[in-house]
Design a protein around this nucleic acid. Structure first.
Lengths: 76, 76
DNA sequence: TCATTTTTACTGCTAAAGCAGTAAAATCAA
DNA sequence: TTGATTTTACTGCTTTAGCAGTAAAAATGA
């Protein structure tokens, strides 16, 4: 979860956004952005998806039982 | 989100688990398992991770800004 | 250095997620 | 078909995530 936090913070920085700006862009409150980047585990999956979409980050699942990886969110 | 629901349901079936069994295995209530497989978007990220770990499904992020994909949960 | 911006952290409050219990509907297996 | 299992769906109840507001700490930059 900490890894995800770092990825998100990194992308936000590279996009030149403040936490507040990312919050507005994602349609969320600033608190959640802060919490996510802090690595808080108990956030809504929905909130995470909104942030990932705003930052154009793909979320994928894979396993030994699957031939191909599957992308969960729709932004590329 | 619907895609994720199908992946999870599929893996559960292949593992020969009922929703209740997966719930216990994940340390969650049966309601959440049902909700997740129904494609409910407003579930705790934490809950999802627990289910994915129980089913040995990797959750990964990727983007154009990243060279390599990053795995979020620790189970392979 | 000093002012401005940003981040971190805390506060109640409100909305809702998660829970077990129950029961009907659906699925499965003998 | 028939009985047992599983899934779907709904019920209150409890816990808590998310919210804005505020302010201190940290970072930025002129």
């Amino acid at each position: 979860m900490d890894k995800l936090a770092k990825v998100i913070k990194n992308h936000r920085k590279k996009a030149g956004l403040t936490q507040k700006e990312l919050a507005d862009l994602s349609g969320l409150g600033k608190t959640v952005i802060f919490d996510i980047e802090k690595g808080k585990e108990t956030v809504q999956f929905n909130s995470l998806i909104k942030v990932l979409n705003a930052l154009n980050i793909s979320l994928n699942v894979s396993s030994k039982l699957m031939e191909n990886e599957v992308t969960i969110n729709e932004k590329s």
